[in-house]
Design a binder for these strands. Structure first.
Lengths: 222, 222
DNA sequence: AGTTGCCATATTGTCGACAATGTGACAATC
DNA sequence: GATTGTCACATTGTCGACAATATGGCAACT
C-alpha cells in the first residue's frame, strides 16, 4: 500500500510527540502493554531515542483519549476497565453501531455492498487459518468500515474512540476468538440487512451483534 | 459550595499542566477565546506565569479532546466547526440524549424528578432576568444532569465530550438565546416525559428537543 | 514484633537554553 | 509591477538540568 504522504509532508506535519503517541497506542492495541501497566518515561526515552518532552506530551494526549491515567509524581498507567465500564462501553458501542446501520442502510451504494461482501470473504479466510492475530484486526476494521461508510466523520471519531478504549479489555475477549461461528453468521446477517436497505432491520441486527458480543465477552470472562 | 478537595489533595493530584488545561478550556467555553484563534505559548507563559512545558502538555490534551488543532511549527489553533460538523454533532447529541432518556425514564426516582423540577424553576428564573450569561450554562447543566442521572459514566463522558465540542460553535448559537419559549416548553415536556417513566416517550421528546435546537441553530445562522 | 526515622534512589514536574522553522519586510532584479 | 533573494525576528520542538516527590530498605527505638 503506497503511502500518499511524502517525506516532506511527513516532516512538516508530524512531531516526535505525534509519533511517540502513535507507537504507544499501537503497543497498547497490540496487547504488548497490558492494562494496568506503568509507562516509564525513561524506558521510552531509551526505546524510542527521544527526549522526555515528546513522551510527556504523548502521554497527555493518551490520557485525554481515556487510554491511560496520569498519577502525579507516580507515573502513567494504562487504564484498567472494570466490569461496569465494560458494560457501558458495549452499551455505547451498540448505540453507535445501531445508529450507523440505521443511517447507512437506506443510503448504501451497490459498490459498498460488494465491498462488504469482500470483507466477509476475508473474515472467513482469516477464521479458516485459525490465526487470531489475523482475524482480530480484520473484525475491528470491518465494523470501522461500516461506520466510515456513513460519511459522518464525528460519529466515526466517537466510534473509534470507544473502540480504542475497548482494546483495554483483555485482548481476546472483546472479539470472539478466531471468530466464532455465530459471530461470523452475524456478520453475514449484517451485510444482508444493509443490502436490504431497511434502516430498522440494519439497526436491529447491528445492535444485536454488539449485544451478543457482550454476552460472549461475559461468557469468556466468568 | 464547599470544595471537598483539601490543599494537600490538590497539590498531590494536580499538576500545572492540569490547571493550565482547565483554564484554557474555561476560556474557550466562556467564549473568551474564539474558534479559529491562535493560542500562543508565550502569551500563556506570561498570563499564567508558568514555563512552556505545562502549556505544551495542556495543548496536547486539548488537541486529543478535539478542541484545538496543533499545526507543527505554526502553532495551536482553536478548532472551527463547519456546518457539516455542526450537523453531525447535533446528530450525535440527539442519539446520546435519546439514549439517556430511554434509559433513565423507567428508573428515575421521585427525588430525581423533584430535582429536575427545581432545575425548571431555575431555568425560568434565569430566562426572566434576561441574562444570557446565566441561562446558557444552566441550560447545559440541566441536560448534563439528566445524562448523569443515568449513572452510565461512559455515556456521560462521551456526552460531555460532544458538548465541549459544541462550545466551538458560536456561543449564543447552540443554545437558544435567553431561552426561547419553545425551548423552555420543551424542557417542561422533557421532565414530564421522564416523570411518566415511559422510555420511548422520553427518548422521543429528548431527541426532538435536540433536533429542534439544531433547527433553531440553523435559523440563527442563516 | 511493631513503629518511627533516616537515607538513597528512581522517577517525575518544571525550568531555561539551543536549534529549527515559518513568516514578513525589504532590497534587488527582470 | 511581479518575482526572487536575503535577513531579522517571533515562535515552536526538543533537549538536558535541577528540584521535588514517592518509595523502599535499613537501623534505631519502644
Amino acid at each position: 500500500m503506497a503511502s500518499t504522504m511524502t517525506n516532506l509532508d511527513l516532516l512538516q506535519s508530524r512531531t516526535l510527540a505525534d509519533l511517540v503517541q502513535q507507537e504507544i497506542l499501537r503497543l497498547i492495541k497490540a496487547g504488548e502493554i497490558a492494562a494496568g501497566a506503568k509507562l516509564n518515561e525513561l524506558t521510552f526515552v531509551q526505546l524510542l531515542r527521544v527526549s522526555r518532552a515528546p513522551i510527556r506530551e504523548a502521554f497527555r494526549a493518551l490520557e485525554a483519549a481515556g487510554l491511560v491515567k496520569l498519577e502525579k509524581n507516580r507515573g502513567v498507567f494504562v487504564r484498567e476497565i472494570s466490569g461496569d465500564e465494560a458494560r457501558e462501553l458495549y452499551q455505547l458501542r451498540a448505540i453507535l453501531d445501531e445508529t450507523a446501520g440505521r443511517y447507512l442502510a437506506p443510503r448504501i451504494s451497490d459498490t459498498e455492498i460488494i465491498e462488504l461482501q469482500g470483507w466477509l470473504t476475508r473474515l472467513e479466510a482469516a477464521a479458516a487459518t485459525g490465526q487470531v492475530g489475523d482475524y482480530f484486526p480484520l473484525n475491528i476494521a470491518f465494523h470501522d468500515r461500516i461506520v466510515e461508510m456513513t460519511g459522518n466523520i464525528t460519529l466515526l471519531e466517537f466510534y473509534r474512540r470507544a473502540i480504542d478504549r475497548m482494546h483495554l479489555l483483555r485482548r481476546q475477549s472483546f472479539s470472539a476468538p478466531g471468530g466464532s461461528n455465530p459471530s461470523r453468521q452475524e456478520h453475514r446477517a449484517i451485510v444482508a440487512a444493509l443490502e436490504s436497505r431497511d434502516p430498522d432491520l440494519a439497526a436491529a441486527i447491528l445492535r444485536k451483534h454488539v449485544e451478543n458480543g457482550y454476552q460472549r465477552f461475559l461468557d469468556i470472562n466468568t
